[in-house]
Design a protein around this nucleic acid. Structure first.
Length: 427
RNA sequence: UCCCCGAUAGCUCAACGGUGGUAGCACUGGACUGUUAAUCCGGGGGUUGUAGGUUCGAAUCCUACUCGGGGAGCCA
């Protein structure tokens, strides 16, 4: 049996294949917490009920030894999860010696170096299961809302946005780069399939050393033909609200393990507030920030803005100067572009960047030249504006930042099984 | 890349110029029939990150380096 099916197995004799999570023993009774990946089961061995050799064996089981235990499943209030096994036999596969992660506190460096073992811990177990539900709800929402999965290439000949640093590799003698976004390709597939999304790993070789950055992270990027920036926001708020609701419904136990207060998550329902960059600058200045119009927001600014709202907040119409070349110029204020970032509450900041794309051939060409990008490299992208150009929009949601917010984690490094951080690629 | 901080037992830490800690966890021997990071008694466990320097004496002060943490910039 798997431990998460304990309720269905009460009164039955079952076998659990797992690992020793922790054990305690007194003179005549021993408690072994066994985990099998699906949960943790308290297994009880009473000296009088079993052969002496089994009792002695169990008493000396070490943390993370692999065992198969058999016995009867009982409902038991005193057991951690409400059920326990009264053990009749034990088979030891391997005795683990000196497992490094003890049931006391450890430092981040030590735990990261032992990430391959750290994932066995209860807290990491809960976070990874919430991550899996977030990923599943992302796919479920898009698949059932008319979006077609159209994955973008990981290897590419040129940068998507000139600004970020790219990881380079050798592609049969010519330079190639690891994708930092599938967006440009999404624009092509959206013109072929209407509503599309890509979902995969993304790479940024930035020397960023903060709680919000990984060099390899997962991003889902939907793109929609015949969609303006405002309709784009409509989709995003429904999408994010759906993800949060699914986690609340399906991961109660995991949220409890990580002691996440779910009250703020219950409030994540559409519509989300929408403020312009201008309004955001005003709001920041009133809050005492020295920011001037035309400057980009840093982590502190994002925290201040999102701290004013209980729901995620859209900040739209940023100045053109620090946004990517493909963003559509705002016809009402040509100094700005029709983009919108979504800032998560509780100080988490940007989880989505998106907006409307420039669909005018001439304007796009001018922006491309202004950024010093080669027209030849982007010939295929410009074709999309030559052959049936339409208003279209899309966005990219960072999975790890979303997991960090929903789990209220202090750092994104715990949101992915094996995080890739600045100069850290082991294990 | 820049600014702060740190490195002592396998892990988490104490000692802050005068002999490395009756320290906790882990491991190990013992006690205990309902434990919840169990508790209690005993045991083993150290080139104080590396290389120099100051000093009668350095884990402690100074310099450089290495590794790590927090933050900035950039971004999801």
């Amino acid at each position: 049996m798997y431990i998460d099916r304990a309720a269905e197995c009460v009164g039955q004799v079952e076998t659990i294949d797992g690992w020793v999570y922790n054990s305690r023993s007194s003179g005549k009774v021993a408690f072994v917490l066994v985990r099998d990946g699906s949960g943790i089961m308290q297994c009880v061995v009473a000296k009088n009920d079993v052969d002496e050799s089994i009792f002695e064996l169990v008493r000396h089981l070490t943390q993370e030894s692999s065992i198969s235990v058999s016995g009867t499943i009982h409902a038991e209030e005193r057991a951690p999860a409400g059920y326990e096994m009264h053990v009749t036999s034990v088979r030891v596969h391997q005795v683990a010696v000196d497992y490094p992660i003890t049931p006391k506190e450890h430092g981040v460096d030590f735990l990261m170096n032992n990430r391959h073992l750290w994932l066995r811990s209860k807290r990491q177990w809960a976070i990874m299961r919430i991550r899996a539900t977030i990923v599943k709800s992302i796919r479920d929402y898009l698949d059932s809302s008319g979006f077609l999965l159209m994955d973008a290439p990981i290897l590419s000949a040129n940068a998507c946005e000139g600004s970020s640093t790219l990881f380079s590799t050798d592609y049969f003698g010519v330079p190639a780069y690891l994708s930092q976004s599938g967006q440009l390709y999404n624009e092509a597939t959206a013109m072929a399939f209407g509503k599309v999304y890509c979902f995969g790993p993304t790479f940024r070789a930035e020397k960023s050393k903060t709680r919000r950055h990984l060099t390899e992270f997962w991003m889902v990027e939907p793109e929609m033909a015949y969609c303006d920036w405002s309709q784009n926001c409509d989709v995003q708020e429904q999408f994010v609200a759906y993800i949060v609701r699914r986690v609340l419904e399906e991961r109660k136990e995991e949220l409890a393990i990580i002691e996440r207060d779910t009250a703020p998550l219950e409030k994540i329902v559409p519509p989300f507030p929408r403020i312009s960059y201008d309004e955001a600058v005003n709001l920041l200045q009133k809050a005492g920030s020295p920011i001037q119009w035309g400057e980009d927001f840093g982590g502190d600014e994002e925290t201040t803005i999102s701290g004013q709202f209980e729901r995620p907040v859209f900040v739209h119409s940023y100045p053109k100067s620090f946004k990517a070349f493909y963003m559509k110029t705002n016809p009402e204020n040509p100094q700005t572009v029709l983009c919108a970032d979504l800032l998560a509450p509780e100080g988490y900041g940007e989880i989505i960047g998106g907006g409307q794309r420039e669909d005018d051939y001439q304007l796009l060409l001018e922006r491309l030249h202004a950024e010093g990008l080669s027209e030849k490299d982007y010939a295929w992208y410009l074709d999309l504006r030559k052959y049936g150009s339409v208003p279209h929009s899309g966005f990219g949601l960072g999975v790890e930042r979303t997991v960090a917010w929903i789990c209220k984690l202090p750092h994104v490094r715990e949101t992915i099984p094996f995080p890739r951080l600045l100069e850290k690629i082991y294990p």
